[in-house]
Design a protein around this nucleic acid. Sequence first.
DNA 1: ATTATCTTTCAATATTTTTTGAAAGTTTAA
DNA 2: TTAAACTTTCAAAAAATATTGAAAGATAAT
Lengths: 166, 166
Amino acid sequence: MELKPARKKFIQTWGALGSQWGINKTMAQIHALLMVSHEPISMEDIMEELHISRGNASMNLRALMDWGIVYKEYKAGERREFFTAEKDLDELAVKISRERSRREIKPALKVLKEVSVVEGDSAEEKHFSEQTKKLYDFVLKADNVLDRITEYKDNWLTQLMIKFIK
Amino acid sequence: MELKPARKKFIQTWGALGSQWGINKTMAQIHALLMVSHEPISMEDIMEELHISRGNASMNLRALMDWGIVYKEYKAGERREFFTAEKDLDELAVKISRERSRREIKPALKVLKEVSVVEGDSAEEKHFSEQTKKLYDFVLKADNVLDRITEYKDNWLTQLMIKFIK
DNA sequence: ATTATCTTTCAATATTTTTTGAAAGTTTAA
DNA sequence: TTAAACTTTCAAAAAATATTGAAAGATAAT
């Protein structure tokens, strides 16, 4: 396969995957582009390759940097800023997990805890309280697991366990 | 806390969480409503509680059933259909993981495999091929881990390992 | 201090996604 | 077979989300 179409296809796919998981398409595409680039890229080049406006590029690069998965780089003697992506995938996964946990899971957990204190004797009230308590425990555990996904992934004992469970 | 506002708050939160993860708000809300209900609910009641149209309710219930996490129930002597949610959270997680894997991850893996065969001697081509190969391996492993999230979660050895890794 | 180069911001616009509601479809009962 | 009770479908409308582009904001060179 040729580089150009392969790159294009990869960027499209990564963008689509992103939007299915609540990350905007352009953000995921910029990230994809940077991940497969062997050297830092300027905003101008990102705009050109993805056919997007300056504003769009700027805003999404900012967002990616807020997630801690894209970095600014300065080249000596260059006025422009260049960008690179976190290329260590374990590091990438850890950062994404941490951020999603902080932004989305933790607040949801807080609410689950709040609402699960419903008291009362009716079947309705009992069931509500029980179910939300279970959800709290479950989400809490899942959150921990996600946070440690790479540690699991690469642990030999775990690998063994996977085979065992299978 | 009172049941009514607690239930409302839970449904709102679950809906918001859903949309942040690429599941539409109403779908997540219907699911939330059914999860905390101690008995099956009719479409009419769902429409009323969530203030949504008949069409919306019908389509999202269909989607939830396609995911395998909501079931139809028939009550003796009743013409209407009633709905319940999968309430076993482990089962819920397994089904969601399986579906997302099948619909989103597997197709992405296929593309990753396709594009990673790029050949050539330039640094650009080499880097592209290496990086997409790494991504393929990583996503494949992560997919397997997700698929087994509950097995991990409840395994005592793993629990011990979490503490150990910490 | 002025200009040139580059980045950010944000109101307006465009696009995508979701929702509505009425017509068509289905199933059961009379 | 007709009607009643309910569900599904889908084109149109609404809502939510993303994108643009030009003006304002930085920063460095002259």
